[in-house]
Design a binder for these strands. Structure first.
Lengths: 207, 207, 207, 207
DNA sequence: AATGAATGAGGATTCATTCAT
DNA sequence: CATGAATGAATCCTCATTCAT
């Protein structure tokens, strides 16, 4: 707590904080206009600095999205992995995954939008974004496994194609990020609950 | 039937056919890489000609998407309007609208993808694309009206937010265009049927 | 000789000719101001077109020097290899090599200047220019081998360091490209002859 | 001898020393990569400080080369002038000039390299470097006068073009700075002696 | 209809330089 | 003295578009 110590800490975290600020501005703009259609100047304007100044903090426009996406994905997968490791039933797992998804939408909304809209383009254009394709693959694996298990255990309807259910859920849930706004009437959690309710009614086996 | 007249007709339709071919190629590429990220050269490559040659057929890159989108939207709204005018019950109307949506996905897949991913950007950037925002507004109006009617008539669940149901359906259905591929295992119609089945189970009132 | 055939040939070579013209202009400017200090606009100005137009013909500023240098080096080494394979005596070989060097200076003057001034920078900065370092290595090998042979055969002075002689000759000869101008009083060949005369007097063994 | 005075002196010379250190680092890097291709950051890195910090010591990148070059040139011309004023014979003068040149290469190697490679560019780009062109002119005048005198006095060969001899010597001698390294096998003086020996044999009149 | 060369505005990036701390 | 964040002009390069052939 000595002044010296506060300075040192301050300096270290000041840099990280500034990066985070700038990335927040960038994510916002990328999500709104699309990564390619957004100019570096627009990002800089949103951050209140000049175009060239961004390059003091980041290597390139590319590395900005990089950091935006990987920060979000790391957190998301940590959350998903925790849930998957908890040994819950199929239905409880699905509930938890949907809730976690909405938490991510709440916290990382712009990143989620970018992840959805730009993944294919980014992965197809630069090798460094190969991990995005990998993330989608894990996504599919996770949901598909869960749904098949739910069907096998008699919890989910057996008359539907599992791959189709997977996509249905994935899309219905994730696309919500595209329209969900900070000032939305319903809190993200409530949206999640209602979505979950629809999905569960829609896919659970009738007894 | 004079040679001249046949020529004229032949020329006219040949020209129209060529346009259609080129637009199909363009739509394909725009859908895959995104409108902004796609260069005119890429479109031309996909069509087997050189970049400059496209300008014999079209005024600009802009007017290509224009035509791709308006062709699709005109057809889609004609279909929707026919259904809405048919005087069906809420549930039957919803069934017909979902079926019509999947017909559009089947016929205009790339256009649907573009409509979803690029509408916001296009409408925000050029006035001439204002009709896209208008189309989305009509979309919302249509679904919201239908859902509220269904709730009022006791066919749909009353415990859900109508605006939320609207988005849920819209997203779940339309985003299917993003993953639906020509060679898909299930035909579009079957996908539509299963989606509808999930949605109906999910939102209909329990008796 | 039919018009058609002439057209086809014409088209093919027209492209190559244009490239050559542009490269000549570029080499000129690069040699005069230095590669890094030369802007693409200056190259374009020298060629009478706009900056962007260069990119129709070349991938990058880098690939322009690339082509300038490799064209020159390929020709130079072909010449050197022919001479080295001819089985001449040390003194005759040296004479021929110097003559060939001055022929290159005459034909590729700007390229020679670039080769001298920028090789180190280019090779250190981009892997693709690694062959420049390789070329210098062959250069050294060639001259050093020749000089040692000349000393061993008693044709060249034994009281000098061979590596030093090599550098002396290399520099004296090649740097001439820096000052030799198209309108020079003496033709390149005559300069070569006089240089050779100085060098030979300077290094040959006194009998 | 008062503390104050000692401080003042100490500060002054400390500052001068620091400048010299920084300039040595700068010269090194400029010589290696070329003035234009070297960034201020690279200079700072080589000096172990940050880019901005250089501006506490120097006005600009320009003024760094300025100082590097003028320090060297002042010393060099002082040496040359002393020799020229000594009233030696043509041959002895030439010997002394070559020796002095190698002394400069030894002491100011990076500056010599910069002087050779960048003079034309600097003089053509900024008026303040006009003195570089002037220095080259004096160089030429000096050598040319000497050579013509040597020829007239029968010491040097009359069958060679004096301008050519001048360039030959100038280049052969000065370019040595480009390859001479601190750890070189032969000391600079010995290189000078051998070079001189070649040159003298090469140009002196045969009796 | 199509080609291919060129245009020129705009975009990402670099870098010398400034300045508050 | 040095730092580190920011500036802004300049640079390389891209790309929609034009146009003579």
């Amino acid at each position: 707590m000595s002044p010296r110590r506060r300075d040192a800490e301050g300096t270290t975290s000041a840099r990280a904080e500034r990066r985070a600020e700038l990335l927040a501005a960038a994510a916002q703009v990328f999500a709104e206009r699309g990564y390619t259609a957004t100019t570096v100047r627009e990002v800089a304007d949103a951050a209140g600095i000049l175009g060239g100044s961004l390059y003091y903090h980041f290597d390139s426009k590319e590395s900005m999205v990089e950091e935006i996406l990987s920060t979000f994905l790391d957190d998301m997968w940590a959350g998903f992995d925790r849930i998957l490791a908890a040994g819950l039933g199929a239905r409880e797992t699905l509930e938890a995954l949907v809730a976690e998804s909405f938490r991510c939408i709440d916290v990382y909304r712009p990143a989620v939008v970018i992840y959805q809209k730009e993944s294919r383009y980014l992965a197809a254009t630069w090798e460094r974004f190969g991990y995005l394709a990998e993330s989608w693959r894990r996504h599919q694996e996770m949901w598909l496994g869960l749904i098949e298990r739910g069907i096998a255990e008699g919890e989910f309807r057996a008359d539907l194609d599992p791959a189709l259910i997977y996509r249905f859920i994935r899309d219905a849930v994730w696309v919500a990020a595209s329209w969900y706004q900070p000032g939305e009437k319903l809190p993200a959690e409530e949206v999640g609950t209602q979505y979950l309710s629809i999905v569960l009614e829609g896919i659970q086996a009738t007894t």
